[in-house]
Amino acid sequence: MTHRFVLGTFRSEDDVLGVVKAVRARKLSLHDVYTPYAVHGLDEAMGLRPSRLTWVCFLAGAVGFGLTMLFQYYTSAFDWPLNVGGKPYNSLPAFIPIAFEATVLFAGMAVVIALFIRCGLYPGKKAKIPGPRVTNDRFVVVVRLDSADASAEDVQMLMEGFGVEAVDERVGGVA
């Protein structure tokens, strides 16, 4: 079935927070919310799960730390031992700064790459947004109509309670 979407355009973030809560309270399907900036409290209002990117960050950091420690141990103690100031070839304190930098590098790069993959972002990608003003001064709340007989009017009435500026219906996609 092709989805139908109701798009409500709002002027203020308070209205957006209110309408998002009302949409979820009515058990309507909240598809997405487009905002020009990060709105505080919107994640909770939308009921989004906590980001799993933190796990990517942690695991990539741990891998970076482990790999560089192993690499330094192998090169310094086995492959090419150098006498530095008479210290043991396998000297833990000397490995820490590089392992620290590699932890930061791996964690940082991995989390950005994971974010891009998860969001389907790549250089030159065309933005799929309901209209250019969501990058400027308007907020758009998108409700998905799940059944063929669901009425867009109900959603419109609900949105009007929160001072909606314009309501459109789109079929097939939001953008």
Binding site: G85, K87, P93, A94, I96, P97
Partner: peptide, 12 residues
């Protein structure tokens, strides 16, 4: 803590 320890350890 590590900065202080490592620099003193390295310099010896």
């Amino acid at each position: 803590w590590f900065c202080q320890y490592m620099l003193i350890w390295y310099g010896a």
